[in-house]
Design a protein around this nucleic acid. Structure first.
Lengths: 160, 160
DNA sequence: TAAAATTACTTAGGCGCCTAATCTTAGGCG
DNA sequence: CGCCTAAGATTAGGCGCCTAAGTAATTTTA
């Protein structure tokens, strides 16, 4: 790939990421949550999860999960309780309030997607989805090449 | 757009952004710089700029530019001097050291792009670039609808 | 030409996500 | 059984970018 192509690609990805995130923040702010929270709430929509499962599903690191779950708990949207089978683990599930937020959440999420593709000139929505999922899939396997642990595992550098 | 489509789109954008950024960080770290710095250095490759011009070109907010330029100056890659024509403005330009870094920087940037598309299965590079630039262009105009000020201008809420 | 508005930059502080390191519990194995 | 390693969660601290708000200089305007 020549430099101009590479630059166009890199810059487009960066710009899309920034703009998309701004849209997501704006759409979710009225509900008092952030883009990272949204991902966890939708994951919890299909049942309780441990924090480790949430980390694996979201791609976020465990400390980020700890913090986000704490925020969601403070907001009254999720409940935490110890796992009955593993004393190390914490189960997280939606509260009634959290569950009742889901419809609005999904609507906001659709709105973000609509805004994202509203300005398309030369391509179609299906096109965009195909390209982006292909790109995302390829990138995920590139960055985290192990098969059974798809999430990125940070290298441990030093141990005291 | 239905919810599954919207979710696929949003998640793909999020995932691509995160992975791509991770690649960029890894590629630029050996040079001691971060993705945001790279953008500024390449912009400066074509000549001196004021910080306001850097903000407009990069899409970053002025305070972020202040901080990044300070870091680049500390690293010896750029030089700052007062504008001869506007006492408010600061001119930023590459130092010799900064200029000599450009080739390595461009190579790293190409490498990031290559890695980004290395895992493609169902689409081609040209395809990806077309879709992403279309998306980026559309999003930019959506988020910042004014014509002559393309960069996102944060709303001022309160003034004391 | 003085007041008002705008522009360039900075300081202060926040937020989301990260890595490093630690604590506790689980589970394999001699 | 008692190790020893791995796994779940957390604390501590860092980084990049943000918004809010302030100062100083310039341009607009009445």
């Amino acid at each position: 790939m020549n430099f101009d192509q590479a630059d166009a690609l890199n810059e487009a990805i960066r710009a899309v990421g920034i703009r998309h995130r701004a849209l997501a923040v704006a759409a979710l702010a009225p509900m008092g949550i952030h883009p990272g929270h949204k991902l966890l709430l939708l994951e919890l929509a299909t049942g309780p999860r441990t924090q480790a499962q949430l980390a694996a599903a979201s791609g976020y690191e465990p400390p980020s999960i700890t913090e986000s779950v704490r925020q969601l708990e403070t907001a009254g949207l999720v409940v935490r309780r110890p796992s009955p089978t593993d004393a190390r683990a914490t189960m997280v599930e939606l509260s009634d309030q959290g569950r009742s937020l889901l419809p609005k959440l999904k609507a906001a999420w659709r709105h973000v997607a609509d805004q994202t593709v509203a300005g398309l000139k030369t391509t179609t929505v299906d096109h965009v989805i195909e390209v982006l999922t292909d790109l995302a899939t390829g990138l995920t396997s590139t960055v985290a090449p192990t098969n059974d642990v798809p999430r990125y595992r940070a290298p441990r550098r030093r141990r005291r």
